[in-house]
Amino acid sequence: MSYTTTRGIFIDNFSSDIPIMTIHDSGSVLSLVGPFLINLYVEVSQMKDLIKASWADEVEDHLEKTTLPQSKTEQIGNSRIITEYRWNKDDKKEKVVRTYKIEKRFVSKTIAERKTWPKFGDSRNDKPGPNIATTIPAEEIQMQFLSGKDGDKVEENPLDKLKNVNMNIKCRTCGGEHWSFSCHLKGTGLVVEDKKLVQEKVAEPEKNTSTNRPYIPPSAREGATNTAGKRDPYSRSYDEVPAIRIENLSESTSEADLSELVNKFGQIARIFLASNKVTGACKGYAFVNFKSKMDAERAIKALHGYGYDHLILNVGWSTNNYKYA
């Protein structure tokens, strides 16, 4: 039996003791996939501690306190809303509203069959659909694309930066402007005879700066641009290009209008249009994140003072973009 392997193409005589498998195309069938949990809302009921006027009220109140309303399921088009009530740890009623999206997709027969398997093990008693105890829709996140060499910049050592900063370093051996351990006279036994002279020369201009200057942490010192400590830990977009703020938009502006307006200037990472939650009307301002700073600069230049709808736009860098992120 020959044993040769050609890379990329599998050509071989298989030995009989390891049978080869053949893959059959199983075809596709329409199957229910999901449901997808798209929204979860938990409301804790407030207990009313009022003095009851009559015993009848108390009985009613007691009933209300000890029984849970029936759970109900509503089906509206492609979404299913399940409302359930439960007791939480503090013995307060909790209303749990779960919104599922139902979707049908063409999948292969094997996948469709597996979708019908009953749950087992610790999930034995779970209802169909994701259990909120084990499956949680996480917060929206952005994939961060690194443009050019941005990735390397982040990794620079903060100590390297400090080396370039004048920190009034003075060598104990010769009085020069370097650390004692890196003195060229170290270990030689040589001591500069006129050490005092050198020292005085160096010490003179330092006097007024070093004595009455308050302590400045290394991260805040001049030249230390890698401000790891100062960075807002909750900001999600620290290495994104800062947002630009567009003001004086008309009420009828929609997100689509806005993206049409700004996408001429370059690739956009995110658009946030402040709008009234009830009416959907624009509140008059928006934030746009471009992928590159150059594009953002061009957009500011071009759009500042530009007449849009019947208003003159006011465009600039967003000053505190962390808060709005």
Partner: peptide, 18 residues
């Protein structure tokens, strides 16, 4: 001690191997 299996599409847990 228990491996789990999930539907990858919607994150529903199918079961555990106890």
């Amino acid at each position: 001690v228990t491996p789990n299996v999930w539907y990858s599409l919607n994150g529903e847990r199918l079961g555990t191997y106890n």
